[in-house]
Amino acid sequence: MNMTRRQLLILLPAAAVAWKSILAGTPEASPNYTMTEHWWGMLVDITKCIGCGSCVRACQMENQVTDGYFRTWVERYHVSDYDIENPKVDSPDGGKNGFPPAAVSDGKNFFVPKMCNHCADSPCTQVCPVGATFVSPDGVVLVDQKYCLGCRYCVQACPYGCRFVDPKKETAQKCTLCYHRITKGLTTACCENCPTGARQLADLKNPNDPIHEFLRTHAVQVLKPYLATRSKLFYNGLDGSVR
């Protein structure tokens, strides 16, 4: 093999980097990912949701969620014209297998996908007595499965009902925003499998993310804004009756 001095000099640093990654032992899950360059959230477009339950099924498969528990679920709202403050809500099996036809045809009907709001000021992380749950530097609320005691303080504290204690593991479980996927450049399982694009992963620190244009041009709302949790789950077309 013939190699000029120039080629050798170019190759040496590359070899050094490769050797370093070998020496490091277990390769890091996402070597090209820098936490401080991201600030994750999600956009949910209610006007596009068809209640097919693809997101719920995808989440369950991707994250091995115990049957009967949900990290994301879909609710169907029925709002009567005469009582807009008291909607009727159903979510059979989290909407995993779709929804049966509506019993009444009057009023307004729509679907609302729900999941962890990944609040920047999250009430759930503040109450943890052992520091097992936290907001990561890239804005994702995570649970340390090895540290969690299963005391359920966080389940009580979440105003959106997004946490549960797994009956087998006895630790708090919640949406991780598919942290194992987004750190590798993939989108979340629910966003990947949403057939209508009603869910979109958003990186608020990326100036080229379409979320910025969307937020500028649409009437976007978060759930329970009066709680000042700085939720990052943005809803387009959110009806006032949604709790």
Binding site: Y33, V135, D144, K146, H180, R181, T183, L186
Partner: peptide, 18 residues
């Protein structure tokens, strides 16, 4: 912060299904 830094890496290392 007031948590185990390695917990982030452990979550990121979970297997992918899709």
């Amino acid at each position: 912060g007031h948590y185990r830094g390695n917990a982030i890496k452990e979550t990121a290392a979970l297997p992918i299904s899709y």
